[in-house]
């Protein structure tokens, strides 16, 4: 009983202290809000081979999380971009993909619950074609591909923890791989599955202050 009262007192005291503290400071840090990128094309389909394989133009789409903008392909060798997209493949500006300080790993969990990147996390860098920071392949990285339904579905509960080209941190959740921001129904016509694929919708939070906290 005595102990409980003691605990209560500590709580009350602490809250009074915190309350007064927040009142006295004037620098209120605005919470970071998530940015959503809709229908980012990622080497969309331009034709179908005689063997029936749809193909794109073979180009990556480079994206700057810091600026929330597409980076021109002519700047592919720069540190202006953080992520590059081509089909289901996602590059980071790191290793043999770029000259930046980038890197990434995939964390199993929820986007909103990732408040701090744990200090012992290891950021992987790209070493294509054998390995990429954002692991490539169905069921291994951020998506699963069903060959029968011919559909790419983002895995639930996967957060791409990204180190940007400038060495800052961001977290990304892929929402859809199809135009319109939603995975197509399994019953959608084949033609729609071809023309609407390779459009990314994702949300992210970029921490500009260089810390690992979101």
């Amino acid at each position: 009983m005595k102990k409980a009262i003691g605990k209560c007192l500590v709580v009350v005291m602490t809250s009074i202290f915190l309350f007064s503290c927040s009142k006295s400071t004037t620098t209120v840090v605005a919470p970071l809000t998530a940015t959503t990128v809709n229908d980012l094309p990622a080497d969309t389909i331009v034709g179908i081979t005689p063997q029936g394989q749809p193909f794109g133009a073979g180009k990556f789409t480079f994206y700057s999380l810091e600026k929330n903008a597409i980076v021109a392909n002519t700047d592919s060798a720069s540190t202006k971009w953080d992520l590059a997209f081509n089909g289901t493949k996602i590059l980071t500006n790191s290793g043999n993909s770029g000259s930046g300080l980038g890197g990434a790993f995939i964390q199993i969990g929820l986007f909103d619950e990732l408040k701090t990147i744990s200090s012992d996390s290891v950021f992987k860098t790209d070493n294509g074609p054998s390995s990429y920071a954002v692991t490539f392949g169905s069921g291994r990285g951020w998506y699963t591909y069903d060959p029968i339904k011919n559909l790419v579905t983002p895995l639930a509960g996967r957060v791409l923890v990204v180190r940007t080209a400038s060495g800052k941190y961001a977290k990304v959740e892929i929402i859809a791989y199809y135009k319109g921001g939603a995975t197509l129904a399994a019953t959608a016509p084949d033609a729609e599955k071809i023309t609407k694929q390779r459009y990314y919708t994702f949300r992210y939070i970029f921490q500009p202050n260089g810390t690992k906290n979101f």
């Binding site: 199993i108 929820l110 895995l155 639930a156 509960g157 959740e173 929402i175 859809a176 919708t201 949300r203």
Partner: peptide, 13 residues
């Protein structure tokens, strides 16, 4: 440790 998708495509437990 099992997640699913909300209707808007984001994940939840």
């Amino acid at each position: 440790t099992v997640y699913t998708k909300n209707e808007n495509g984001t994940s939840r437990l």
